[in-house]
């Protein structure tokens, strides 16, 4: 079974979101090397995952799959466990029951080399989390050198190449604090891509941004999705979901309430909770 990450023709974008990138703009060419088309093989398999904080259950029996090349958007009200679930995928959050498999490697297994697994899973955070004491170049190269063992020259070449792709070449020598939120988040995406991940996780990548900067970050993510990157994205940006998502997962109170194709989800959500959520989020 093959699903192609092409945006539906019925995908209207909110006004202003189509704005072109400031700075020197996105350069031509893919953000990542070309990959073989979607094979339908699971990249992330989440199987019956449950998690408790003490006696409080934050995740209840969550099961879903993200296939290679697929873009899956996870949405839901705050406190529904969507951020927790995505952090379980690269073991930033431990979980007590169930199993997650990433590209064939079990996340909850003593034999698993977690740093190695994580180095193949890119992650972008709500608050960017660039390292403020390092220049943009050093932010891009640190993990390449320390984790992948690349030479400083190779790491810098890869880092600066990706920095150009997100349109921020002029800022290589600056420090994170000198960049706007949108620029910092684009650097954070480049930093994750520099590790040549097989899958990218986004944890509310635009929630901490001023409205006028949301577009430039989404543009990079759309580009990435069209290049065939496997992505799991926690976001409230329904415009993005409509544009590039293959599937939408709706979570509420720690449960996966709805796991549907994009057209089914926006067309006829089955659960009342998803209907209620959509009516609230799309009404403005």
């Amino acid at each position: 079974m093959t699903s192609t990450p092409i945006p539906g023709p019925d995908a209207p974008t909110p006004a202003g979101r189509e704005a072109t990138l400031p700075d020197d703009g996105l350069q031509q060419g893919p953000l990542i090397p070309p990959r073989t088309a979607t094979t339908g093989e699971p990249m992330i398999a989440i199987n019956a995952v449950s998690k408790w904080y003490g006696s409080f259950q934050v995740l209840t029996d969550c099961t879903t799959t993200v296939s290679k090349g697929e873009v899956v958007v996870v949405c839901g009200p705050s406190g529904s466990g969507k951020s927790t679930l995505i952090k379980c995928v690269n073991a930033l959050e431990p979980f007590q029951e169930g199993q997650i498999t990433v590209d064939g490697t079990k996340v909850k297994d003593r034999a698993t080399n977690l740093p190695k697994l994580r180095s193949r899973v890119g992650m972008v955070f709500q608050h960017f989390e660039l390292f403020p004491h390092l220049s943009i170049t050093d932010n891009l190269t640190l993990a390449q050198r320390k984790v992948l063992g690349r030479s400083p020259a190779d790491a810098e070449k890869r880092g600066l190449d990706l920095l150009a792709r997100v349109g921020l070449s002029d800022h290589a020598k600056k420090y994170p604090g000198q960049l706007s939120g949108g620029q910092q988040q684009r650097v954070a995406i480049a930093r994750a891509l520099a590790m040549d991940p097989v899958v990218m996780l986004f944890d509310e990548p635009t929630s901490a941004l001023d409205p006028e900067m949301v577009g430039e970050v989404l543009d990079v993510m759309v580009e990435l999705a069209r290049d065939g990157m496997t992505m799991m994205v926690v976001t409230h940006e329904m415009g993005f979901a409509r544009k590039v998502a293959d599937r939408v997962i709706f979570m509420d109170r720690g449960e996966i309430v709805e796991d549907a194709t994009k057209s089914d989800f926006f067309g006829q959500p089955r659960s009342p909770r998803a209907q209620h959520f959509l009516s609230k989020i799309l009404s403005h």
């Binding site: 930033l92 994580r118 955070f125 989390e129 993990a143 984790v147 992948l148 954070a188």
Partner: peptide, 25 residues
Amino acid sequence: KGQTAAALALGMTRAQVMRTVVLPQ
């Protein structure tokens, strides 16, 4: 905490995170 999480997510070990990200700051 997000600084540590970001560094771990890049595949660094706890010792590397401490040495290159947390302690310098």
